[in-house]
Amino acid sequence: MHHAANPVREFDAAAPRRRERAREDLEGGFARWRLAWALARGDITHRYRGSVLGPFWLTISTGVMLTALGVLYAKLFKMDVASYLPWLSVSLIVWAVISQVVTDATTSLTGAEGVIRQMPLPYTVHALRVVFRNAVVAAHNLPLIFVVFAVFGVTPSWTVVLAIPGLLLLGIAGFAASIFLGMICARFRDIPPIVGSIMQIAFFVSPVIWKPEMVGHWEPYLPINPFFALMETVRGPLMGTTGGIVVWLTAILWTGLLTLLAWTFFARFRGRIAFWV
């Protein structure tokens, strides 16, 4: 048996010190990254419990979808499969990551209701769990890009390394989104379906299946769409461009704004979460 130190916890409703508590929550959440990782890993293994291929079904289903869509779209849009399919694969895989993170973010807190109402735990652990879970899923899908590249003889250029900071940016944005969306979706139960509709619309208005240059002189304004900016920081480097300085700056700006929003909201309403879920 081991005795822990004697921690002191104080709360005064007249002086709630919200910002300080939010910061402690953040530190505590990251200190418990092992827990977030174990829970995220559990989420994935439980989903594929008893299945022979396990999480590799993620890889297979994405691969089948890419093959079908690639052949169909090339026929429909009269494009050259060899040039279009690698691009479409990267687009769809990166979009799937973004869209899944946003969908998961809406249930980051309501999904952990049982734990939140029973034991004190930093809320940021649940946001971290969402990010880790999606990182595991992404790790099963992203390698497919290189399979497609190999099939069509595309050689990735040095810019591929830029996809790593792009993915990191996506991770930060996903973490902030998990806190912000997780909170407002716990309080207002109409938000998750709204988010679902928005993501569906965003899929068509963002250049996922169509190429950015197709909008002609609107192209410079595309980074106003945060989904495009964040997607391009990963897709650009994978496709052999840097993405461009404007895209990177807007992606960083959007992530910064989202983080600020999430932090403000979290600091103000953190104490209410247990009553909301």
Partner: peptide, 30 residues
């Protein structure tokens, strides 16, 4: 235990807490 934040008053707890409030909390049935 620190789950709910009070709307009024003060609370001071010294010492680590072990809670047996809900036996299933945080357990993974699988």
């Amino acid at each position: 235990a620190g789950v709910y934040e009070p709307v009024a008053g003060t609370l001071r707890v010294e010492g680590e807490i072990g809670s047996l409030i809900d036996p299933a909390a945080g357990m993974d049935p699988l």
